[in-house]
């Protein structure tokens, strides 16, 4: 199995890992993926993937406003807000 690029995965997942964490996680992931590769021995040609354990269809909700919005309550635990907005460090577009 090819080396797993932990730094790339960490970038995608927005995680900051130290060099030491990268090497520990890298070893763990190698072991996990070796275990996972047992799957490859099973023939799955002509098998439909199963996404949900019950073969049900999506239910459709009537187009009605059912939610009451308590902004102040929702923002009580927010890390930073002003004038009802959530604040983050400036985003450059």
């Amino acid at each position: 199995m090819a080396d797993i690029d932990i730094q790339h995965l960490a970038n995608l997942a927005q995680l900051e890992l130290s060099q030491q964490e990268i090497s520990v996680v890298g070893e763990d992931l190698q072991r996990i993926m070796i275990m996972v590769d047992q799957m490859q021995a099973i023939d799955t040609s002509n098998v439909e993937p199963l996404a949900h354990p019950l073969d049900a269809r999506q239910r459709l909700r009537p187009d009605q406003i059912t939610e009451t919005i308590e902004r102040d309550l929702y923002q009580q635990g927010a890390p930073a807000t002003a004038d009802g907005l959530y604040l983050v460090p400036r985003v450059v577009e």
């Binding site: 002003a82 907005l85 959530y86 604040l87 460090p89 400036r90 577009e93």
Partner: peptide
Amino acid sequence: HDAYAGLTGID
């Protein structure tokens, strides 16, 4: 983007 110095507000 423009309302707060160094910050972006999210609505």
